[in-house]
Amino acid sequence: MSNPSYRELSVNGLWKNNPALVQLLGLCPLLGVSNSAVNALGLGLATALVLVCSNIGVSLVRGVVNTAVRLPAFVMIIAALTTCIELLMQAYTYELYQILGIFIPLITTNCVILGRADGFAAKHNPLIAAYDGLLMGVGFALVLVVLGGLRELLGTGALFANMHLLFGPIAADWQITVFTDYKGFLLAILPPGAFIVLGLLIALKNRIDHQLAERAKVKQPDAPVQSRRVRVTGVIE
């Protein structure tokens, strides 16, 4: 199988085939922890790291794993990596780990990770698989952060609160108060708010894609009309 270009992988992961906005995979953690930017960023980084490492692991063993046990073997790789991430978060970001709760172990069953492992990494070399995992993970994390940031801003009037839970004391003053004396919009940080904001993001992406397609049609030159030159020859006696 021919390897796709790095540009194609980048466009697919970040926009054209984004796992959150296009494939609509991993919606449970996407909606469950995106009530603040720090929660979204923490889970997004953990998911991206597992995605990169699992793609590499699956690509390395793809030639020696029997077809009958392919999926169980892939799940074991993903579960082992998720356990490592879980232990690291317990050691260095324990408070954030407690907030994220069950969503960290559930990375093992995230459809984004298993889908890329079986659909892409199992068919390509480790370098290409790692790059695909990185871009898909970054695309998923970006949507998480944007969703979390918007919900936090609408719900509390501030951004990047409690970032010290992820980055330590250096991030204690990273909070940005956008609206002073803000009364808050409770719906934004409740579960229904997650569905509403995600729906708006998907609609915005579809609108942008539609406009880009229309511009491409306008810029596309008309097919050249090939004129045929008829040569008339005469015989003079």
Rank of each mutant, 00 (worst) to 15 (best):
P4E: 01
L9G: 01
W15I: 13
W15Q: 09
P19H: 10
P19S: 12
L21N: 07
L21W: 08
V22K: 08
G26P: 04
G26Y: 08
L27F: 12
L27W: 03
V33S: 04
S34W: 02
N35F: 09
A37T: 15
A40I: 02
A40Y: 07
L43R: 00
A46G: 05
A48D: 06
V52N: 06
S54K: 05
N55L: 01
I56V: 15
N66M: 13
A68N: 12
L71R: 11
A73Y: 08
I77D: 00
C84R: 00
I85R: 04
E86I: 02
L88D: 00
M89D: 02
Q90N: 13
Y97C: 09
Q98P: 00
I99D: 11
G101W: 12
G101Q: 03
G101K: 08
I102L: 13
N110G: 07
L114M: 14
R116W: 03
K123V: 06
N125Q: 12
P126Q: 09
L127K: 13
L135K: 05
M136L: 12
V138A: 10
G139H: 01
R151M: 02
E152C: 01
L153D: 03
L159V: 07
M163V: 01
M163Y: 09
L166P: 07
D173K: 14
W174F: 14
W174H: 09
Q175H: 02
F179T: 03
Y182H: 06
Y182G: 08
G184K: 04
F185W: 15
A188W: 07
L190W: 10
P192T: 01
P192Q: 05
G193F: 08
A194C: 06
G199V: 05
N206Q: 14
I208G: 11
I208F: 12
H210M: 13
Q211V: 06
A213K: 13
E214P: 01
V218W: 10
P221S: 11
D222G: 14
A223Y: 07
Q226T: 15
V230C: 08
V230F: 10
R231N: 09
R231H: 05
V235N: 09
V235A: 06
V235R: 14
